[in-house]
Design a protein around this nucleic acid. Structure first.
Lengths: 189, 189
DNA sequence: ACTGAACATTTCAATACGGAGATAAATTCA
DNA sequence: TGAATTTATCTCCGTATTGAAATGTTCAGT
């Protein structure tokens, strides 16, 4: 997760902590806080504030989601792979990779682990011998089919802090933001 | 980052890919897509959709931020530590940890690395011998003082896809969402 | 003063994941 | 046909990060 950049002033005259005596000052006393003047540029302050809340909210939700996935011995990335296959059916490894936002090496590793647990299998692609499909096994289908609804419930509960209209507003704006940063228009579904 | 759980139907009648013949069907042809019925519960569909766009937008921005931090050989987490110290002055290790959202062990490792580069130092806390302050060295202060404004500029540019009012709206709602998930009210600054 | 619980930090081991390069197949173009 | 280029995946290595257990400290209660 992002290191929660805080909003911020760009003032540079900090009460520098050299190895000298003055250090003791703010270590023992109330500490001057180095008086960071409020951000010079309001546009920057606004953007930084947004970045902070975005990063923190995501981190919090992610933690909940991760805990839920962990109940089934699943990483969020593993969960994402199973879920993608569950909703889209067999996909090329590369498709799964792009969809779940992992690296090229990562998808191999993920599929290896899921395959070792008998949840997915690799199938050679008849049209392209470089490629191969990743498919859910019956066991994997049953598995994700059982746990996904529960997971969805957790997410819904988490999001319930926002009213339906608010959720839609945030989703709309974030989609706009996300699309502006991605060349890959990404599946619109 | 979150494994981008997609929005989703909970339909379970998948064209299961067993080791039999029927598999060839959707591997060679157009692939039935396993017809996922639209989400049963609209509240769940809404929440899942929000989670997806939230996770993706965050991932995209995070990538940009990470690339920028990498220019200076910094992890986002390291950047976050430096920035926290820059804006708040010396802090106890635990404070930094909570602020930057890393694990207990993680903060030790982070401070170790930054200290090895001469950017921060540990100082014993006179009041509590278990604790210790983390302080920026002069070198560290200069360093973060130089790169932070550039980083802020990057974030501002990224966020510019949204109008100021939109940014504020999203920030307000995400803060509300984040607070509902955190016991730690977190610094209001 | 003494015991035990709560705490701040560090140590340690496990691991998920990213990224660069390797491999191999498909595609393009001469 | 055959080189050169692009594409799909995998191998391999490095490392950031987590979580549990260890260490040393403070604090409350008696």
């Amino acid at each position: 997760m992002p290191a929660a950049s805080s909003q911020g002033p760009i003032a540079s005259d900090h009460a520098t902590a050299s190895s000298q005596q003055p250090v003791a000052n703010y270590l023992t006393s109330k500490m001057p806080t180095t008086a960071p003047a409020p951000a010079a540029d309001p546009a920057i302050a606004r953007a930084l504030k947004l970045w902070v809340v975005l990063a923190r909210a995501t981190a919090s939700i992610e933690r909940r989601a991760r805990e839920d996935a962990a109940r089934h011995e699943l990483t969020l990335a593993e969960f994402g792979v199973l879920e993608a296959l569950y909703h889209k059916g067999p996909m090329l490894a590369g498709e799964v990779q792009r969809r779940t936002l992992v690296s090229s090496g990562g998808i191999t590793y993920l599929v290896d682990r899921l395959a070792a647990r008998g949840l997915v299998e690799r199938r050679p692609c008849p049209d392209d011998r470089r490629a191969n499909y990743v498919v859910l096994t019956p066991k994997g289908t049953t598995f994700i089919g059982t746990i996904f609804p529960e997971h969805a419930e957790v997410i819904a509960e988490v999001m319930s802090a926002l009213a339906p209209g608010e959720q839609e507003t945030v989703a709309r704006l974030l989609r706009k933001l996300g699309l502006s940063l991605r060349q890959t228009p990404d599946a619109s579904d």
